[in-house]
C-alpha cells in the first residue's frame, strides 16, 4: 500500500518538476566544477606548456614528460614517497585496527574514544612543530632521555636513514586515532549474532578476530586503506615543517618537489606534469586496491 503511494508521488514529481534533482545537485556540482574539474583540466593543459606565471604559457608538447623521465630527482622523490607510504600505512593500519578491536571488544567508553582521537584534533603543522622540538638533536627531550638511558643521541630528522621513518611515525601518531575510529564504526555495523554464535561454538578471541571480524570488516578496511593511501601519497606539511626535504634529498617527497618546482622555481609546467604523474599513480593504485580487496562486495549477505 505504502509503496504504491510513494510510487505515485515519485512518478508525479518526475513529470512535474524535472529540474528539482538538478537544483539539489547544483551547489555540489558547482563546487565540483570550479574547485575540482576545472583545476584538473587546467593542470593537465599546463603540463604540456612552459609557464612561469608572469608570461603566457607556451605549448611544448611532451617535453615536460620527457624531462620527468630523465630527472633523477623525480625518481628519487617517487622512491622516497613510496617508502614513506609503506611505513606510514603499514604501521598505521595495524595499530589502528588493534585499537579499534580493543575498543570494540573491551570498552564502549566515550572518554577512551575521545582520547584516541585527540592527536587528530591537532593540526598537521602544529603536530610537526611539536615533534620537531621533541626530537631536536640539541635541546629535544627525546634525545635527552635517550642519553640518560645510555643509547645516545639520534639525529631523528637530520640523519638521512632516520628522517623518513621519523616523519612516517609522526603521521602515524596523528592519524591512528582517526583511522581507528573509522574502523571502529565499521565494527559496530557487524551483527552481534555472529559473535554470539562464535562464542557458543567456543571460539577464542584470536579465532573470532581472524575468522569473523577480519572477513566481515574487509569492505570497510578496503575503503579506509584507499583513503589513507591517497592521503599518505600527498604528504607535504610534515616534511615541509620538519626537514624541508633535506638532508640532501633524503626526505624530498613528491609533493615537496612539486611545490618547490612550482612556487620556488616558477616552473609551473613541469610541476603540473609531475602532478599529473602523481594523479595517474594514485588512480592505478586505487584501481588495484578496489580489485584486490573487492571493496564493493560484502560477505554479510
Amino acid at each position: 500500500m505504502s509503496t504504491q503511494v510513494t510510487g505515485r508521488t515519485k512518478s508525479s514529481s518526475r513529470t512535474q518538476q524535472p529540474w528539482l534533482p538538478w537544483l539539489f545537485l547544483f551547489p555540489a556540482g558547482l563546487g565540483y566544477v570550479v574547485f575540482f574539474l576545472w583545476p584538473t583540466v587546467r593542470g593537465i593543459w599546463l603540463s604540456f606548456t612552459e609557464y612561469n606565471l608572469l608570461t603566457p604559457a607556451t605549448f611544448i608538447g611532451f617535453d615536460n614528460y620527457a624531462r620527468m623521465f630523465g630527472d633523477p630527482i623525480f625518481w628519487n622523490a617517487l622512491r622516497v614517497t613510496i617508502w614513506y607510504v609503506v611505513l606510514n600505512i603499514g604501521i598505521q593500519t595495524i595499530v589502528a585496527l588493534l585499537i579499534a578491536v580493543l575498543m570494540h571488544r573491551l570498552t564502549q567508553s566515550t572518554f577512551v574514544r575521545s582520547v584516541v582521537l585527540s592527536p587528530y584534533l591537532v593540526s598537521n603543522v602544529v603536530a610537526a612543530v611539536i615533534w620537531l622540538w621533541i626530537l631536536d638533536g640539541q635541546f629535544g627531550i627525546a634525545n635527552q632521555i635517550l642519553e640518560w638511558i645510555g643509547i645516545g643521541r639520534i639525529g631523528f630528522l637530520t640523519d638521512p636513514n632516520w628522517a623518513i621513518p621519523t616523519i612516517a611515525m609522526i603521521n602515524v601518531w596523528r592519524h591512528m586515532g582517526y583511522t581507528a575510529l573509522l574502523i571502529f564504526a565499521g565494527l559496530q555495523t557487524l551483527p552481534n549474532s555472529v559473535y554470539e554464535a562464535a562464542r557458543m561454538d567456543g571460539a577464542s578471541e584470536t579465532r573470532i578476530f581472524f575468522s569473523i571480524t577480519m572477513p566481515l570488516l574487509r569492505p570497510i578496511l578496503a575503503l579506509v586503506l584507499i583513503m589513507t593511501v591517497i592521503g599518505s601519497f600527498q604528504v607535504f606539511d610534515t616534511v615541509s615543517v620538519t626537514t624541508g626535504g633535506g638532508p640532501a634529498n633524503a626526505t624530498n617527497v613528491l609533493q615537496m618537489y612539486i611545490y618547490d618546482m612550482a612556487f620556488g622555481r616558477f616552473q609551473f609546467g613541469y610541476a603540473s606534469a609531475m602532478s599529473v604523474a602523481l594523479l595517474i599513480v594514485l588512480a592505478i593504485i586505487t584501481f588495484i586496491q578496489f580489485k584486490v580487496t573487492r571493496a564493493n562486495d560484502t560477505d554479510l549477505d
Binding site: P160, G245, P247, A248, G264, R265
Partner: peptide, 18 residues
C-alpha cells in the same frame, strides 16, 4: 637564480651532512 639555489643547496648538504 632559483633553480641554481634549489640544486646547489642539496649538493652542498650532501657533502656536509652525508
Amino acid at each position: 637564480g632559483a633553480d641554481i639555489s634549489a640544486l646547489s643547496v642539496v649538493a652542498f648538504e650532501d657533502i656536509y651532512a652525508n
